[in-house]
Amino acid sequence: MGFEKAEFGVNPEPRCPCVLVLDTSGSMGGAPITELNAGIAEFHRAVSSDDLAAKRVEIAIVTFGDGGVQLVQDFVTMDCFRPPQLTEGGLTPMGEALRLALSKLAERKAAYQQAGIDYYRPWVFLITDGVPTDEWQSAASMVRAAEAGKNLSFFAVAVQGADIAVLSQIAPPQRPPLALQGLRFADLFQWLSRSLGKVSQSKVDEQVSLPPVGWAVV
């Protein structure tokens, strides 16, 4: 990082941050990882098509699976984002991934505050098809405490094969995990782009009603 650290000087728009915490373990191989990558690219395209959302919606991507836990993408607004090609492999260290996501989010909020940049309540968006292979309970209590303190909004999406019982203990009671219908990643990311797009056009602190969830099993 060099002169581009002046990003808040160049783009002082309020930020709408979202961390994608994505399962890239071995079981995501084949169609799921392909659909996931396509979904992220579609998300980027959809948000970028709106000039204001492109300057306000920021995502960071944490993956768990291939290569352990990785920060694949640090926070970046959509106008500067280049979608990655994720690959699958390895175990499912979900606990560590969530802890990393929360700590990167805390860092980012501190950076907003230091630069005097307004921000919307951050989203943490977990997508998994597996069972955590590491200690996840501490991450769960951190997520729940952050939710209770209105420090973030947490969403858990269960792809077929996910341990709904575990996800139910991580996700806040008022927003239980949603089960993805088949491989409807495209619909999921379209919903995410519409939702974040809507949030990013609202006033900071305003309550926003999200579009209906058409991709989940009810």
Binding site: M1, G2, K5, G9, V10, P12, I117
Partner: peptide
């Protein structure tokens, strides 16, 4: 990017990271 025309001041969020780097 450099100046806040409302307060007639400079934006530290623009200059500080540049000078620092």
């Amino acid at each position: 990017q450099c100046l806040d025309f409302k307060t007639r001041s400079a934006f530290p969020r623009f200059f500080a990271p540049l000078f620092q780097h």
